[in-house]
């Protein structure tokens, strides 16, 4: 901002309006506080790695015990529903690598073979992946498939 002179001189005198020290200090304090809030929240459990199954297995040692989000497709035929009240087991694949997942919460509406999912939970090396959230993505478009006959 250029240090222009106020068009109508105010009681405090001819200073650039934004150079009010108290306001400036308050602004800087606020900005720092917000910056700290953002930084602090990023350090906690709020941030998690978003990886594919292959990337997860490649970095297994590094991310052991941290929260991760894993994206992939549900392996066809791998879903074991387990009946009401029991966990669901299924496999997620990125095409080459596959991972076992256990999930106990509410099953999302669009959950079936081939569907793209994002599972989130704490990763422990060498164990089944215990997911606490399971997000599904609409298969392709937000509408039904195109007619196949022509």
């Amino acid at each position: 901002m250029t240090g222009g002179v106020a068009a109508e001189p105010a009681a405090v005198g001819r200073r650039a309006p934004w150079l009010n020290t108290k306001i400036l200090v308050a602004g800087v304090v606020l900005a720092l506080a917000v910056g700290f809030l953002i930084y602090n929240s990023m350090q906690g459990t709020a941030a998690s790695y978003f990886v594919t199954v292959g990337e997860l297995q490649a970095q297994a040692d590094k991310v052991d015990g941290t929260r991760v989000r894993v994206g992939g497709d549900v392996v066809p035929g791998s879903i074991q529903m387990g009946g009401p009240g029991q966990p669901i087991r299924f496999q997620v694949t990125d095409g080459t690598h596959t991972m076992d997942v256990v999930y106990t919460e509410v099953v999302p509406d669009i959950f079936s073979d081939h569907v793209q999912v994002v599972v989130e939970g704490t990763f422990h090396k060498g164990q089944e992946f215990q997911a606490d959230t399971l997000l599904t993505k609409c298969p392709s478009r937000f509408e039904a498939a195109q007619p196949t006959d022509s």
Partner: peptide, 18 residues
């Protein structure tokens, strides 16, 4: 090169105090 995502806790922790 790795993708980090933030979830609802992040927004709650930042926007809550604000």
């Amino acid at each position: 090169e790795t993708k980090l995502t933030v979830g609802p806790p992040f927004y709650r922790q930042v926007n809550g105090p604000l």
